[in-house]
Design a protein around this nucleic acid. Sequence first.
DNA 1: TTTTAAATGCAACCGTGTTGCATTTAAAGG
DNA 2: CCTTTAAATGCAACACGGTTGCATTTAAAA
Lengths: 133, 133
Amino acid sequence: MDAATTLKKHDLKVTKIRLAILDALGKTELAKPYAELQAMLAEFDRTTLYRTLLALMEKGVIHKALEENGESYYALCSDCSIETHVHDHMHFKCTTCGVVQCLDLPKRLKFSAPGIHIDSIEVFAKGQCSNCN
Amino acid sequence: MDAATTLKKHDLKVTKIRLAILDALGKTELAKPYAELQAMLAEFDRTTLYRTLLALMEKGVIHKALEENGESYYALCSDCSIETHVHDHMHFKCTTCGVVQCLDLPKRLKFSAPGIHIDSIEVFAKGQCSNCN
DNA sequence: TTTTAAATGCAACCGTGTTGCATTTAAAGG
DNA sequence: CCTTTAAATGCAACACGGTTGCATTTAAAA
Ligand SMILES: [Mn+2]
Ligand SMILES: [Mn+2]
Ligand SMILES: [Zn+2]
Ligand SMILES: [Zn+2]
């Protein structure tokens, strides 16, 4: 599906920066750091980038893969909508080359603790990617 | 063990702000947001707070429990040192009252993916704490 | 083509991260 | 208890992302 169709499906107007963001994130499971997005989208005002990322996240088009040392990484969602945000995957960062990717989880995670109720679980792993080991 | 002894054990000089940070974090598994620490430690320069948090983390006295929306939460380590940083626990945030705590994991986590090597895993869960459900 | 709610650009403010440098201080050694 | 000095602290300064208000532009419905 092309970017414009994706936007329409999520009730988002088709605008230049939205197409550019989807293009920048590509079609892979790789996440991009905010600074890199900002650089690729330097023609747009950073406030617009900020609000567009918020809108795309809210509508389930993209998600924040992780936040580390004040740096945020963004990636495309595979199958989210404004009412359903499900991420059955973990996030992995290669400590050698710095690449961040979304990886499928072998099985659905299930934790419990006395007295508390868990709604969602995020997993973040670090190590070496296939190119670096 | 008192705060001064803890600092000495980790090769840290006993200073006012270090004692104050350990005092602020208390003896529990509860994590404190940076802003709250900053408010409790307003008598110190924020640069000193910044560098002291870095030093305490490096030496294994405290750890950053989580980063969410640009806000960092800090908590005491239970058994870390400068050469060994092991956190066999998950982090939990109550979406109702906002409390963040370190929770023991039932079992050691083990994930794998083709081609990659995983060194460490962090788990972050959201839900309702025992006071809020 | 007209209309209008939504999107964008711009200015402005805030808080945190980060570094350099001068001053103060913890604590080791005598 | 003094002296000494590496480490810690305070202060200034800058970078950068988050956030909001408001005026202008624009996507797309009618
Ligand atoms: Mn992801
Ligand atoms: Mn913890
Ligand atoms: Zn790598
Ligand atoms: Zn609660």
